[in-house]
Simulated scan of single mutants.
Amino acid sequence: MEKTKKIWEKAKKTAIDKDQIKSTLTTAGNKLKRLAENSNEWQELKSKLEILMRMIQAHLSGEYRSFPVSSIILIVFALVYFITPMDLIPDVIPALGFTDDASVVFLIVKKLNRDIKKFRLWEEEEWEQAD
């Protein structure tokens, strides 16, 4: 539980620093690529993380500002938890190492369901306008 508290504190600090958020996005993207290369079983986790990453990127760029601060912190927490190798179940443990990462991401995605739906609608409108 102590590790989760430390990750939460790091997420809160990261959420207010654009450079740290960008660094977290880069690290999460790199880890996500490695994870996706290693297994097809992680495709659902990959898609959940990708939407969270797009949400933060759109927020950072100023294109989409409809998130409450609490949602931004939760998204950053999910990303920081995902990239932290020594969380509740260390990532170096084969097969089990990413299960806690997946659990945290899925829990946060469920909690942010309304924000995600609104964001996806906004994305669809943006894509339609671009055509």
Rank of each mutant, 00 (worst) to 15 (best):
N38Q: 14
K46R: 15
I56S: 09
A15I: 07
I83T: 14
V92S: 12
K31H: 10
Q43G: 02
N30T: 07
E128T: 10
L96K: 05
S66I: 01
A11V: 07
L32E: 06
K13V: 07
H59T: 08
R120P: 00
K12L: 13
V76H: 01
L32F: 01
S66E: 11
K33H: 06
A78E: 03
L45W: 01
W8L: 12
V105R: 05
Y81C: 04
E125V: 11
P90C: 09
K18T: 08
E41M: 11
F106I: 01
F77R: 01
T14N: 05
R54A: 08
S61C: 04
T26M: 11
E41D: 12
E9M: 09
D115W: 02
T4P: 00
L60M: 12
S103A: 15
S39W: 06
F67A: 08
M53C: 02
P68T: 01
I56A: 13
F67E: 01
E123L: 13
N38G: 15
A102V: 07
K117A: 09
Q57S: 15
T4R: 15
L79C: 05
T14G: 06
R34A: 09
V80P: 01
Q20Y: 08
I51S: 06
L25V: 09
M55C: 01
K12I: 15
D87L: 03
L79F: 05
F77T: 04
G29C: 06
K46F: 08
L35R: 08
F82P: 03
R65Q: 13
L60V: 11
T26H: 11
E37Q: 13
Q43R: 11
I75V: 07
I89L: 09
F106Q: 07
E9W: 04
I93Y: 02
I21G: 02
K18M: 05
A11C: 08
Y64W: 09
F82N: 05
G97P: 12
I16C: 02
E125Y: 02
L96V: 10
I73Q: 15
I108D: 02
D100I: 06
E9R: 13
S47L: 11
K5T: 11
M86G: 06
Q57D: 10
W8T: 01
F98P: 00
L88I: 10
W127N: 07
I116P: 00
V109R: 00
E37F: 08
N30S: 08
I108S: 03
F82Y: 13
F77K: 04
E44F: 10
L88H: 08
N30G: 12
K33A: 11
L74M: 11
L52W: 00
L79Q: 04
V104C: 03
T4A: 13
L52E: 04
D19R: 14
I56V: 15
N113T: 13
N113K: 14
F67Y: 13
D17I: 10
A130F: 14
P85F: 03
K46T: 13
E128V: 12
T27Y: 10
A11E: 04
D115L: 03
R34D: 15
K118W: 02
I89F: 03
L35V: 06
E9P: 00
Q43I: 11
I72S: 04
R54W: 05
G29F: 09
L35M: 14
I51Y: 01
Q129V: 07
N30F: 07
K118H: 10
E123N: 03
T99K: 15
V109W: 02
K118Y: 05
K6V: 08
D100F: 04
P85S: 09
M1F: 10
S61H: 09
F67L: 15
E44G: 01
R120A: 10
